[in-house]
Write a protein that binds this DNA or RNA. Structure first.
Lengths: 282, 282
DNA sequence: CAGGAGTGATACCCAGGCGGTATCGCCGCC
DNA sequence: GGCGGCGATACCGCCTGGGTATCACTCCTG
C-alpha cells in the first residue's frame, strides 16, 4: 500500500464524498475513484458503500480509516523526527514539549526550572496547544514529549510517568447562589439552570451538539463564566491566577485528574529521558 | 514520503550496501541510488555516509531507520487488519492470539477455556512463535492480542494487563552437582563451568556473539541441557511437563517474570476486549 | 606503480501509471 | 420527463520509476 492511496482513502472516508475529497486533495475526481477502486480490489474488500446519495463506510472501511490515520501519522512523524535529528546534529539541539494552555502552569514552570538546572540540559521549546491536541502533536512528531491529563487525554500508545494528582473544582460566576457552598457534588453542577457546561472542540475541530457555548481555550472559558453564561469543572490547579469575578468550589465526587508526562515509545532521545527523570523527581 | 522510499531506505540501512539492498528489493542499483538521493534532498539531511568501502548511517539516518520501520509496520498492520475485518464480516470472525511457544502453557490453556465458555465468544486462533516474535506479530497486524513476558519482551507502545507473576528457576542436567541444591543465586548459575547460557536469536534472526550454543525454541533448549551442553534460567512455569533428564532449581535473586496480555492501543475489537476481560478475571 | 576488482553515481532510454478532460449511467427530485 | 448531482468509464499525454551501459573513485595486489 502506498502512502498516496492511504491519503486518498482517508480523504474520501472523512468527506464521504468523492468530489469534495478530490478537491481537498487537489486532484480531479476520476483518478480518485480509480485509486479507491484499485485499493478495494487489492484488499479484496469493499471499503465504501456507494449509495445513490453520497457514500458510507463499510466495516472494513472503518478499520482501514483508523489504521490508515495511524500509519500516516507514523510516516509524518518519521519525516519530522528525521528533519529534527538533522537539525540537532548541526545546530542547537532542543526538545519540543507540548502542554495544554492554561493547565498545570505551576508544574510546568517548576519542571522547566529544574531541568534547565541540570548539567547537559538542552533548550526546551514549549508548544502550548488546545485541549487534546498534545496527543496529535506527539503522534505526528511535532512534539517530543507532552504533559497529558488523565482521564481527559488518551494515553494509549505512549510511555508515561505520573507526575501529579488532584481533585476538581467547579468554576462559577462570583455571586452565584452555589458559590458560597464549601463543596458541591457532580450532579449539582451539571444541573445548574442557565449555566450549561461548555462544549470543547473535537480533534477535527468540530463541536459536539448540545446546549453549552463553544469554547476553544481557557481564556474564552473564564470569560464566559464571568459573564454568567456557563460554568465548568476543572482541575484544582486551574484556579491559580483566577481572574476576578470567578469562584472555585471543590467538587467532591468528580474524578481525580492525573497529570502525566508522555513520550513516544522507543524514543531514543537522551534529552527526553533526562526531562522525564527531572519531572518524576519533582 | 512514499512507502516505496521508506522500504528502499530500510533495505539500504540494513544491508549497508546499495548493491545487496537493490538485489533484496528486486530492482537494479541505479534507481535505488537515485531514490535515496532524492529522499536525502527532500529531507535536507544526509542519511548515509558513503565511504570508499560500503556505507554507514548518519545520526539522522539512525532516526529515520527506527521511525521508518515503525511506519512500515503500521502500514502492513493497516493492510492486514483491513483484510481480516473483511473476512470477519463475511465469514467466521476470529481473534489471533500470539504466544511464546513453551511458555505460560497452563495459563494459556486456562484462558482459552474460560473465554470459550463466555457467551458470544469467537474462535481464538493461537499462533505459537519464537521468543520476542509476539511483539512483531502485534506490530504488523499478524496478531490481534499477545501474551508477553516482562522484562524479556518490550511492552512499550501497547496496552497491557498483568496476568501472573512468577520467579525463575535454573534448568540443569539431572545429576549435575548443583542440581541437588534447594536454591541457587544468579551469579552461581552464570558461572557454571562448561554449561554456558544459550544464545537466543535477535528479532532479525541473527545470533549475538558469545560462548553458548544457539537455540531457537524450547525443545532445542531442553535437549541441549539434557545433553549437558548448556543450562538456562527460565520462569517457574517452564518446569511443567519437563522432560526427563532435567532438574529445576529456584534462582532466588533472578528477576521475577510477569506474564501480561497485550493488544494494540485503540483496538476497537470487542472480541479482544472480551478476551482481555476473561484473562484479567483468571 | 599499474591494473583490476568493487562500489556508488551518472547518462540515457523506455514504458507503465498517474492525472487530466470529456462523457456516460444512475438515481432523486422538482 | 427533464434536470441536477454524483460516481464510473474511456481515452489521452506526460512524468517518473526502472532498466542498461558506463563512469569515477578507491583500495588491494602483483
Amino acid at each position: 500500500m502506498e502512502t498516496r492511496e492511504l491519503r486518498y482513502f482517508v480523504a474520501v472516508a472523512e468527506e464521504l464524498h468523492f468530489g469534495r475529497a478530490a478537491q481537498r486533495l487537489g486532484i480531479a475526481q476520476p483518478p480518485l475513484s480509480r485509486a479507491i477502486a484499485g485499493l478495494e480490489r487489492r484488499l479484496g474488500a469493499p471499503l465504501l458503500e456507494r449509495g445513490s446519495r453520497g457514500v458510507a463506510l463499510t466495516e472494513s472501511g472503518t478499520v482501514l480509516l483508523r489504521e490508515a490515520r495511524a500509519a500516516l501519522d507514523a510516516i509524518e512523524a518519521a519525516e519530522r523526527r528525521t528533519r529534527r535529528a538533522a537539525l540537532a546534529a548541526t545546530g542547537r539541539p532542543a526538545v519540543l514539549l507540548a502542554a495544554k494552555a492554561g493547565a498545570s502552569d505551576e508544574l510546568l514552570a517548576k519542571l522547566l526550572g529544574v531541568y534547565a538546572a541540570e548539567p547537559g540540559a538542552v533548550a526546551v521549546d514549549v508548544v502550548l496547544c488546545g485541549p487534546g491536541e498534545q496527543v496529535t502533536l506527539l503522534c505526528t512528531g511535532r512534539a517530543d514529549v507532552a504533559l497529558l491529563h488523565r482521564p481527559f487525554d488518551d494515553t494509549a500508545g505512549f510511555d508515561t510517568e505520573d507526575l501529579h494528582s488532584e481533585g476538581q473544582v467547579a468554576l462559577l460566576p462570583a455571586g452565584h447562589p452555589l458559590s458560597t457552598r464549601s463543596h458541591l457534588r457532580l450532579a449539582e453542577v451539571t444541573a445548574i439552570p442557565d449555566l450549561p457546561l461548555p462544549r470543547w472542540p473535537r480533534p477535527d475541530g468540530t463541536f459536539p451538539d448540545g446546549p453549552g457555548p463553544q469554547v476553544r481555550d481557557h481564556t474564552q472559558l473564564t470569560q464566559l463564566i464571568a459573564l454568567g453564561r456557563a460554568c465548568a469543572i476543572v482541575p484544582e490547579s486551574g484556579r491559580t491566577g483566577l481572574r476576578s469575578g470567578l469562584t472555585a468550589v471543590p467538587v467532591t465526587d468528580a474524578p481525580r485528574v492525573t497529570t502525566v508526562i508522555a513520550w513516544p515509545p522507543h524514543s531514543r532521545s537522551t534529552a527526553v529521558a533526562e526531562l522525564v527523570r527531572a519531572a518524576t523527581a519533582l
